[in-house]
């Protein structure tokens, strides 16, 4: 889904109108768009440029600076596994194998159905309960292979419920 279609364009405008027409709102706008659409496509960049007056190239420069923002469409659930030292020495590699095997994709990829993306992140401040990962806005620490599978299942279930109109769990 690109932000160019009509309904989506309205939603984009709504996000923009929630912010002042000011350069200091650039990052908040981009964060909101990224959260809502899962990425920031070129049409959205043009609209942000029109709204804030910031040239598209500079907007792109800002997007590429932050690891949570992206132009590439990510999955509905973005899994960000911490790879920094405390998580690393607490068995991160095993969690990597579980995630890749369970989802059938490698890190940096998105499942064909667009549900899950796998990414690494640097320290997320969960060093006291490693290994840890973020899934969208939620944080999960103390990961074991078993726990990872349970978490994934719960998300798959919520996706299933969402699809058939039972309402999301998210």
């Amino acid at each position: 889904m690109t932000t160019g279609t009509r309904a989506v364009a309205d939603e984009l405008q709504e996000i923009l109108l929630n912010h002042e027409k000011d350069r200091t709102q650039l990052l908040p706008i981009l964060v909101d768009i990224n959260k809502y659409f899962g990425h920031i496509d070129s049409n959205a960049i043009i609209e942000v440029s029109r709204y804030t007056g910031v040239p598209i190239g500079e907007i792109h420069g800002v997007i590429t600076f932050y690891s949570f923002l992206g132009q590439k469409k990510r999955g509905r659930f973005v899994i960000r596994l911490c790879r920094t030292i405390s998580c690393d020495i607490a068995g991160k590699d095993q969690i990597v194998r579980v995630l890749e095997k369970e989802l059938g994709i490698h890190f940096g990829e998105t499942t064909d159905d667009g549900v899950f993306s796998l990414e690494y992140t640097n320290c997320i401040g969960m060093c006291d309960n490693p290994p840890a990962m973020l899934i969208n806005d939620k944080v999960y620490g103390g990961l074991t292979p078993e726990r990872v599978v349970d978490i994934l299942d719960s998300f798959k279930l919520s996706e299933y419920q969402d699809m058939f109109g039972y309402g999301g769990v998210e």
Binding site: S42, P55, I56, G57, E58, H60, G61, T64, F65, S67
Partner: peptide
């Protein structure tokens, strides 16, 4: 004119045309 941009971060920084 803003035809150029700084993209990426760290060692991946690229000085390039927009996009």
């Amino acid at each position: 004119v803003s035809a150029l941009e700084t993209a990426n971060r760290g060692h991946d920084v690229l000085i390039q045309t927009a996009f």
